[in-house]
């Protein structure tokens, strides 16, 4: 029992650190640059991906015995687009202001390499619990990446932070009398921010995390 627990934990951490979608695999970079110019959008986008990833992994894992291998990819796509549509409707209903800005990219989740890859490589071959842990890990890793990028970009680029409180959103604070680095909220700054944070993530990983996780093996 303890061994399954630890393996579930490992699966969860795998998606956050070792195979972080953005910082390690450099996949799904399009939303990580396009929607991360304020913290609120980044949070909602990350949450949407987390939700879709977990639900897709659960669904595929439950259906894995009945899916014909020859038509598995179309079925995966159908499942993914189904859950993306659910997410879209939910966001349009509850957070219409965010949806107006990131809606296009929510629809694009269908084409995320990371989600299809996890369905194909993991959920279709593993049971419910490992698949859930894997989906949670990958989704949380993505959420973490998008949150840090948008936090960094909005703070440096606008000198403010926007967070959702309840279902409404508000500015937490705004610096007074400073001239922020405007470039960070522009597209060019997105590339810079992703690059800088990717380097920082890998540096921290190589310096502090690798030792502890690899030492246990």
């Amino acid at each position: 029992m303890s061994s399954t627990n630890s393996s579930l934990k490992e699966l969860f951490l795998n998606g956050i650190i070792k195979e972080n979608t953005i910082f390690k695999l450099a996949l799904s970079l399009c939303p990580s640059i396009a929607v991360t110019n304020n913290l609120k959008n980044g949070l909602y986008m990350g949450a949407a991906v987390l939700f879709v990833q977990v639900m897709v992994n659960i669904t595929i894992s439950l259906m894995r015995k009945v899916i014909q291998p020859k038509v598995r990819l179309p079925i995966f796509m159908l499942v993914i687009s189904g859950w993306v549509t659910v997410t879209q409707f939910m966001m349009a209903a509850f957070v219409p202001d965010v949806y107006a800005k990131v809606g296009l990219y929510i629809a694009l989740i269908v084409a995320f390499a990371s989600i299809l890859a996890r369905a194909e490589m993991f959920a279709s071959k593993n049971g419910l619990l490992p698949s859930m842990a894997d989906g949670l890990g990958m989704g949380t890793g993505f959420l973490f990446a998008l949150t840090t990028i948008s936090f960094f970009r909005e703070l440096v680029g606008k000198g403010s932070l926007t967070v959702p409180t309840g279902l409404a959103t508000q500015h937490v604070f705004t610096f007074v009398n400073t001239k922020p680095l405007l470039i960070m909220v522009l597209p060019a700054g997105g590339f810079l921010a992703v690059g800088i944070l990717m380097a920082a993530f890998n540096w921290v990983d190589a310096k502090y995390l690798k030792k502890s996780t690899h030492g246990t093996h």
């Binding site: 922020p180 405007l182 522009l186």
Partner: peptide, 10 residues
Amino acid sequence: AFLLISFPKL
């Protein structure tokens, strides 16, 4: 270029 884009007014 970085400065011009970041601080267009200054």
